[in-house]
Amino acid sequence: MNIFRLAGDMTHLASVLVLLLKIHTIKSCAGVSLRTQELYAIVFATRYLDIFTSFVSVYNTFMKLVFLGSSFSIVWYMRYHKAVHRTYDREQDTFRHWFLVLPCLVLALLIHEKFTFLEVLWTFSLYLEAVAILPQLVLLQRTRNIDNLTGQYIFLLGGYRGLYILNWIYRYFTEPHFVHWITWIAGLVQTLLYADFFYYYFLRFIGGRGVE
């Protein structure tokens, strides 16, 4: 564990808490893409399959449970909780996210480090997470303005993988044979997809107005 990875995990945890705060307290998911949340639930479900078979640390297991629990409960809230579901923008959240799942699965079957069930699904979760934000970014452009909590959620979600890239650079220089191109490229693509969001998000801070 290094400071970059810890910062990344805390940023990721913060993004989840901001979204849960928004949905649970003000009972609103306005501007939030259910499709991105569903993709993230699949990402965690396929990435943490080894949660019961390989124990890394209490921290690791605890965080996996937090991410699994929060992603599935957010999907549940947005789908089935009456008050929250009413604020869900179904007409605008139309990105064909299932079209992302199959190519990621095919790619994982073609490009992976080991051809085992767990490894292929783990690799699939990396590819899927890289593109999981697309429905949310498309919804963002359609709804023009978004509230601060949603903006902060997306900012933190994009930032966490950026911090992980620093963690991988650190591990590359400190651990002799830490070379994982698949993880690195997927993480880089994921972070780059947020580039224009980050641009407008920082403009907002400079301009002091809502995220356009």
Binding site: S57, N60, W122, N167, W168, H180
Partner: peptide, 10 residues
């Protein structure tokens, strides 16, 4: 094992 693989990451 655990040290060189990103599997110890989230």
């Amino acid at each position: 094992k655990g040290s060189d693989s990103p599997k110890d990451e989230l």
